[in-house]
């Protein structure tokens, strides 16, 4: 834990050394919230059968989707991004030459991204609860937290496979293409998947993003007696059980191959 804290401290100091970027980041975050608020206002009073299950509130629907999406993108992209950054910066090789474990180095490099995405999701969640006025109980918030952790672990597993590809091939990442791009379209993030043609809706079922965003909405927006959060969380748990060991295996193989090829510093 102490070493993770040191990674966090390192990246925090680097982060605050770029003050203009912090300001722009906050502006873009608030900009997204306002944008969805006004889109929600546009739909207010109207009725969409697709949103009926979620209280017919598009603003709440989309902000909860964004809350999940932040965790998804962090889990999926941050490991691969940080591996590539460390390759380009030239720090990866030295980090791996220290007595600390390879897994610690890889995860430690991403921990700041994880913490940032947690804070960002908490902001989206807080805004949704406060502005929309969702009467969320403590147990509902705990469940949402659990969903977000499961979502994160699920996409972290995919992120490990993604990082393995980057370590070996440097650029070009099939995992991001399949689970990133497809997820944003078929994952029910911005719009309910029910608006898609029936055959296409089946693609959503194999995407963890769909189950994650649905779980959060089922917990917060659907009355308890009709909520299907247990089913969706089971899906996420199964994804993790399959993908997590696979992710570690891919990373180990990639590192071994990069060391054999002598390509750890190539990018």
């Amino acid at each position: 834990m102490y070493k993770f804290f040191c990674f966090l401290k390192r990246d925090f100091f680097i982060y605050i050394s770029y003050r203009f970027r912090i300001m722009l980041g906050l502006i873009s975050l608030l900009g997204a919230v306002f944008m969805f608020y006004y889109i929600g206002q546009m739909f207010q009073g109207g009725f969409s059968e697709y949103l009926a299950r979620y209280g017919n509130d598009y603003f709440a629907f989309v902000l909860l989707g964004m809350c999940v999406s932040t965790f998804v993108s962090t889990g999926l992209y941050s490991l691969a991004t940080e591996v590539r950054n460390a390759q380009i910066q030239g720090t990866l090789e030295f980090l791996l030459s220290t007595p600390s474990s390879t897994n610690l180095v890889l995860f430690g490099n991403s921990i700041w991204a994880f913490v940032k995405s947690f804070l960002q999701s908490a902001l989206f969640l807080g805004v949704t609860i406060l502005i929309v006025g969702i009467p969320a109980t403590f147990s509902q918030l705990l469940l949402v937290g659990l969903v977000l952790i499961l979502t994160f672990l699920c996409f972290l597993s995919l992120g490990m496979i993604s990082a393995a590809f980057i370590m070996v091939f440097k650029q070009g990442n099939p995992i991001n293409l399949v689970f990133g791009t497809l997820s944003y379209f078929f994952g029910g993030l911005i719009f309910p998947v029910e608006v898609l043609p029936q055959p296409l809706q089946k693609i959503s079922l194999i995407l963890p993003m769909f189950h994650a965003s649905k779980a959060v909405r089922e917990i917060l927006l659907v009355p308890q007696d009709q909520s299907e959060w247990r089913v969706t969380m089971t899906f996420l748990a199964v994804f993790i059980l399959v993908l997590f060991p696979l992710g570690f295996a891919f990373l180990r193989l990639a590192l071994s191959r990069a060391k054999k090829e002598g390509s750890l510093v190539q990018f």
Binding site: C6, K9, F13, S100
Partner: peptide, 21 residues
């Protein structure tokens, strides 16, 4: 480039020292 350019020399050593347990 195996150092963090936005950090001070001491901050760099603190970080790498932690990796040396």
């Amino acid at each position: 480039r195996s150092f963090y350019w936005r950090l001070t020399g001491r901050q760099n050593l603190e970080f790498f020292g932690a990796l040396y347990n």
